[in-house]
Design a protein around this nucleic acid. Sequence first.
DNA 1: TGTATATCAGACCGGTCTGTCTGGCAACCG
DNA 2: CGGTTGCCAGACAGACCGGTCTGATATACA
Lengths: 197, 197
Amino acid sequence: MAGTAEKLNVRDRLLETAARLFYEKGYGATGINEVIKQAGICKASFYHHFKTKEDLLVVSLEQRHERMMAELRAVVAQGRTPAEKLGRVFEWLGSSCSCGSSANGCAYLNMVSEFRDAGSRVRELVRWHKGVFRTFLSELVGAHFRGSGKGDDEIQDITDEIYLLSEAVFAASPVHRCNWPAETAWRIVAGRLGIEG
Amino acid sequence: MAGTAEKLNVRDRLLETAARLFYEKGYGATGINEVIKQAGICKASFYHHFKTKEDLLVVSLEQRHERMMAELRAVVAQGRTPAEKLGRVFEWLGSSCSCGSSANGCAYLNMVSEFRDAGSRVRELVRWHKGVFRTFLSELVGAHFRGSGKGDDEIQDITDEIYLLSEAVFAASPVHRCNWPAETAWRIVAGRLGIEG
DNA sequence: TGTATATCAGACCGGTCTGTCTGGCAACCG
DNA sequence: CGGTTGCCAGACAGACCGGTCTGATATACA
């Protein structure tokens, strides 16, 4: 029952299984024993690779971040203009938030619910991740308005708005389990980019 | 150490304590033993009033809903026009999401993270709550556009957008712990209402 | 007065949790 | 060959969990 993680080494099998279970069931609701069982790993081997359960979570979230950014780069590569690239991003947000087993919204926002201490390692990681994502958006927005005569402040404001709308998609999708949040968010974004329709 | 719940009867003390702890620490992270200890109630009395811990949560969420709607009605009563009322709502969203001990965002969205089964009682309650809140917004939006010649479909779309932005405030506030989400959201909303500035 | 109800106090049950420990097997490397 | 390393197997410790139970006390009401 090791599932998709057949050929990976022990550490990667643990990370793959943990990422899946922590996302689908939540961190607190997933026991270490379940992770190691589904990964087909014995307990001592787990504690050989990771000091604690939380360490496993942190590493798996870091890995998830890299994977997500890679996916995003691939997604925007399919768009020609910055506006089209942003459109692809919101399309991707919607599909990655309301489809199949991934209908649990944003893995990082979920962690904010589980780790209430704002100074915790996990919260810090979430803020870092969101910062990187916001920078990613800001570059697209900046490129879109390059040479438009818009001031930096206004572009900054629009970036904030678009970032906020991405969070809205993440938050609303798991509640409603359809992709009107992504479509509605994109409608607003398109308006702010001046590409009505 | 019963705190603010001095004069209440047993059931209400339990509900008051549970609402506070479940919100500040999360449902899973709060043990029944801690609730009853802080409420100054013995265990048998708790199980006399509530069948299970989850029952306590459900009733406390229902109570929270009534309290929130009452607060919202009071808040909008201070605005003269529908647009001003909506402005007060977003102001209230920001302050109730990023201030003091309540900097944990939306109690209901947090429950979505903790209850992954979309068919669970708690999830159902969350959807009901969000539906009522959306209706509340839709009445204000409808009043704002009354007689403006805007079609019902367009008003519906704008309502969706504003509701989505309220979710964005709830989701983003606990991550960033300041109220730019509320301000940014309101900037977009004001634009959609046609009251730029 | 007798009975039902609400509450207190806290032991107790069966289960789950993270993390540690012992012990053994196999591969690689000096 | 001997030692280290990675991994397996699973018992175990210690804490905490939700929930049940016994038994005592106080109050209200028939």
